Structures are given as C-alpha cells and as structure tokens.
Amino acid sequence: MVGTSITDWLLDSDPSLRWQVERDLLGLPEPVWQATRARVATEGFGARLLALQDPDGQWAGGAYFPADFDWQGPEAREEGGQPWTATTWSLTTLREWGVDAGVLAGTAQKLAANCRWEYDDLPYWGGEVDCCINSLTLSNGLWLGADLDGIVDWFLEHRMPDGGWNCEWQNGSARSSFHSTLNTLKGLLDYERVTGDRERVREARRSGEEYLLARGLYRRLSTDEPVAPWALRLSYPFRWTYSVLNAACYFRAAGLHDGAEPDPRMADAIERIRAARLPDGTWIQAGRQPGRVWFEIDAAAGEPSKWLTLLATGVLRWWDGRVYSE
C-alpha cells in the first residue's frame, strides 16, 4: 500500500472486484463498469471457475459437497473445514462476482436433470431442509431462471415465532438464528428484486429484518451483550457465516432497493465496522474459513483485504450519505 492510493489499490484487482469499485465507490458511468463486469466471465477468477464446471452442469460432482467428500474423514469431522467447491458454492460465487446468467445458459436445466441434494437425494431446484442452503438455491435459481416457487413458500412456512429463521428447526429449535435469518433475508430480497413482486415476501422480510435490528445486528436481546465473537469478526468470503459487515451489506442493498434511509438501530454496529479501519483506509482479513477451495481469492489472515475494504467502504458511504473520497 505504500505510495498507492486506496482507489488505485482497489482498481488493481480482478475484474470481479474492480467493476464493483467502479460502480459503488467511484460512481463511474454504467457503460464503464458494465464493460469491466463483462470481463469477469472471460478472464481472472470468473474464467477459472467457469472452466471447472462439469459437463453435467455441476461443480465437483455434487450439490453442496463434492462427490469425493469422505463422510467419515477429517472434513466431515470439521477438522479440515467444510469444502467450498461443489455446485452451490461455485454458483453463488459466480453470481456474486456479477457473471451474466447467459454465460451459464442451459445450466439450470442440466442441474434439474443431474443434480440431487446429499440430504435425502432431493431434486436440486426443490431445495432441502436447511434455511441457508435453500436461500442460496433461491438466489442462484432466480439468477439462472429456474422455477423456485416452492422454495419461496417453504420460507414463508418455516418462519419462527420471533420473526426470523433457524436451520436447526428440524432438530426442534424454536428460536431464530443470526446466520439463518440473514441468509434467508438475502434470498427473499433477491426474489423481490428479480421478480418485481414486492408483496409476496414483504411481511416476512420485514419481520426478519426486525429480528436483527432489534438486536443492533450483533447483540443478544436478553443481555445486550455480543451474541458471539463471530459477529464482530470481519472475514471474506462471507459464505454462510454472519458478521456485522455481512449484515450491513444486506441492509445497504435492501435500503437501496426500498428507497429507505438506514435504520438508526444499526449505528453501533456501523461504528464497530468503522473502528476496524486502519489509518491507511484498509480493513484487515481476520482469517479465511478453513476448507478446500478451487483457489484463493483474497488476502491471508492479518493482511489488508481488498474485498473487505470494498464492502466496508461501500457500507460507510451509504450510512454517511456522502460520495466516496479518500
């Protein structure tokens, strides 16, 4: 970073990150950032991941886990960390990088024919029993043009009495989870944005947002103490894990979609994010989640993270209501 501005440092990056810097931080004309976005499919990270797709439409031969996953081995015992190479994670990554769905034409149909969930061998686009998995499936399916109507109904039916969701509902949990609620909210927001239907999931989305906002994005409602260290840990990729930055990114996207001002109950969480910024304007990677990946896309633990710096700066710009400047 020595002798380099934050802007130059961020722009000197893979197209998957660069186009978002151009759009969200620099406010460049749409033709400029769209041209950079189109490059994601043909060079760098995006091209590498697209090239790893199997002929049957999958990645690593599986829905959520790779085909060679050893259910009795270290990964299954969480010693090596969950693998992040299978179809759901690869699709999610490509979607979040901004790859045009047309590049994956035919993938939705191939997955409908060839991909089954590891849980009960259920059909891929029908989802399964995990809120976080179903949310990723909803967002990915909307992107690729699959029929996800059943998953939308599933979310409406599985909301907890306190307004959120919990992946452990099938094990008897009756209280919502930060992780599950945030992931569900992302899927419901994508449903609104893609379909234009602002009524079907609106009340459910509002109740989930209220669950997080009532807790200031990271506190227990009962004690007002932080729910756990992970809530304030800033790391990227987010994947399914909760953090105040992950939540703030959701509320920024929802606020822009709704044309709404930031909720003041987020103030303390926003200041936690701001306090993590170094004097040079960067944010440090707390540590990547363990588990096999196709390739690394961000800094190692303890190093400045371009992805965290992009996302945190965008959140602060939205919260502060002013144009980004160094």
Score class of each variant (00 low, 15 high):
M1K: 14
M1W: 15
V2G: 14
G3M: 12
T4N: 07
I6P: 08
I6H: 03
W9I: 02
L10S: 05
L11C: 05
D14L: 00
S16D: 12
V21Q: 06
E22R: 09
L26E: 05
E30D: 13
V32R: 13
W33K: 03
V40A: 03
A41M: 02
E43G: 03
E43P: 05
G44P: 01
R48K: 15
P55L: 13
W59L: 08
A60H: 02
G61N: 05
P66S: 06
P66I: 00
A67I: 01
Q72S: 12
G73T: 11
P74K: 01
E79V: 14
G80D: 14
G81V: 00
P83R: 00
T85I: 02
S90Q: 00
L91A: 06
T92P: 01
E96A: 10
W97R: 12
G98H: 04
D100H: 12
D100S: 13
V103D: 08
L104Y: 07
G106M: 12
L111K: 04
C115D: 06
R116H: 13
W125S: 14
D130P: 05
N134M: 11
N134Y: 07
N134K: 11
N134A: 07
L136M: 15
T137F: 02
L138A: 11
S139I: 03
L142I: 06
G145E: 14
G145T: 14
D147E: 11
L148R: 13
L148C: 14
D153V: 03
R159Q: 15
P161D: 07
W165L: 09
N166D: 13
E168M: 10
Q170M: 09
A174V: 15
T181M: 05
N183T: 12
K186Y: 08
L188F: 01
Y191L: 09
E192K: 13
R193H: 10
G196N: 13
R198P: 11
R198A: 07
R200L: 10
R202I: 04
R205Y: 03
R206E: 08
G208N: 01
E210G: 06
G216P: 09
L217S: 03
S222Q: 12
T223D: 11
T223M: 09
P229Y: 08
W230L: 09
L234C: 00
F238E: 03
Y250C: 01
A254I: 11
H257M: 09
D258I: 08
D258Y: 11
D258C: 11
E261C: 02
P264T: 10
R265M: 02
I270D: 11
E271Q: 11
R272Y: 13
I273C: 04
I273N: 01
R277Q: 15
L278W: 12
L278D: 14
P279E: 02
D280V: 10
W283I: 04
I284H: 05
G291K: 03
E296I: 14
A299Y: 07
A299T: 00
P304W: 05
L310M: 02
W318I: 04
W319F: 13
S325E: 15
E326G: 01
